[in-house]
Write a protein that binds this DNA or RNA. Structure first.
Lengths: 249, 249
DNA sequence: GCAAAAGTGTTCGTTTTACACCCATGT
DNA sequence: ACATGGGTGTAAAACGAACACTTTTGC
């Protein structure tokens, strides 16, 4: 049994040099019909399609979501969804908030709980889910047409991520295991949408003592190779609880 | 029609010199029966009571909550609940998060969206709701027995309030229209559970330019009367968006 | 006059900001 | 040798923390 009036939607964030991205799911009309209320008659479905032009265009996209099973914890279900969409486990996952406006889904009443996930680019090679026709990363500035209020959910997810990243060391989940200082800086710049001073940024990082020098360097770059760092899990756990005692801004 | 599997619960915070409080609702077993699933048989209800000893004690308490009507926006419904419980409108109300563990309510599956409200003590004279047998303010350190996971919801509400109060000027909603600097300081001390230095605290406040001197003073106090301040709504709106550019800590 | 809380400045160490040049690597 | 990004220090200003005494009022 599923709870017809409750769904979960996951905003999956990724990061690379071209910026911050979200992973979206292209749905065709058939998939949409599966999302829409099972009690709807063909006539009602026809009306829904007519009233909502986005549903008639050939290509549109959605977050990864689904109705909550009656016999599964909410947070568990969010993890399950993420696993089905990406094949990944142990991903950083946070609740954004709950979206419950009457008109957010046409015709039927569905309250959705939004989550966001941060994906390490080492794992970009995602398994293709059986549930989804096609997966694609979109730059946050170039989102395609999205169904329902999914654009709003992404906007809220980004606001939440911004808050989070300033006070807790979570941004690191978007980086590969070993990364350069320039990569972190660029991550913060993209998320906070703000240029920062390299020397001052590095001083702040150094004070945190969160990073350890892996001893390795970049390979095959057409310039001086940067050192690769990892983060210190003990310090990470401490900072996750205490918060960063300074703001990165 | 209501959504059987979705409820809202409101944590109502108040503040006076004795500290931070929550408004709770005493429920008797009859009221509880109304909360429990309508589809439950008398035999099942008997089992629920046996398994959950708290339900058998004469006195226990709950947050203000209810199942979401199918035809009402979630946020609207939270406001309605608050109005029914307190008679107040235009109260500061924020979503805390959604609680969806399988076992949070015995026997039936209910996901609840938590909200917290900040009440100005000028309005403590609450109208008695028809729905509630009795209302009472409880100090946060002396909470009574609470049903379901309501204690956890209150704990989360407090954490959220702490976050909020450090970076946004929302704490003021807990104060009367005109208040003294000592009252604000004591508000921050109670919420953050931390003593602060009066001179340094006042310097920070002054820098914000959020307060305006009302020209009035306390009356009938057995010591030097303190100035009463109000807050400047224009500056408040600005700070609510930008955040406090410093942390009160 | 005394009890109780209001109100107020300075010093010192730390943090933040602004700013420019040399270094290592691949082509 | 040049293009590309990597890496580093200093000085001035702002901020945060610690700290104690005088003022006003009611009794």
């Amino acid at each position: 049994m599923i709870l017809n009036s409750v769904s979960v939607d996951c905003v999956i964030f990724g990061f690379d040099k071209s910026g911050l991205k979200v992973l979206l799911n292209q749905i065709d009309q058939e998939a949409l019909r599966r999302i829409l209320p099972r009690q709807a008659s063909p006539e009602q479905i026809k009306q829904i399609f007519e009233k909502h032009p986005v549903l008639n265009s050939d290509i549109y996209w959605s977050l990864f979501g689904g109705h909550v099973p009656e016999e599964q914890d909410l947070d568990e279900f969010a993890k399950t969804l993420l696993y089905e969409a990406t094949g990944l486990e142990n991903v950083y996952l946070q609740q954004i908030g709950t979206f419950g406006s009457l008109s957010r889904v046409p015709y039927t009443r569905v309250i959705t709980i939004g989550y966001y996930a941060l994906i390490n680019p080492d794992y970009y090679k995602l398994k293709q889910s059986t549930l989804t026709r096609s997966l694609q990363w979109f730059n946050l500035n170039e989102l395609p047409r999205l169904c329902f209020d999914h654009e709003e959910i992404i906007r809220q997810a980004l606001l939440k991520l911004r808050q989070e990243v300033m006070y807790r060391p979570v941004g690191f989940h978007l980086l590969p295991e070993k990364f350069t200082l320039t990569e972190i800086q660029s991550l913060y710049e993209v998320i906070l949408n703000k240029k920062m001073d390299t020397r001052n940024f590095r001083k702040k990082l150094a004070k945190m003592k969160l990073l350890i020098d892996s001893g390795q360097k970049q390979q095959n770059v057409a310039h001086r190779a940067a050192k690769l760092y990892q983060f210190d899990i003990q310090v990470y756990e401490k900072l996750k609880i205490e918060g960063l005692n300074f703001r990165i801004e």
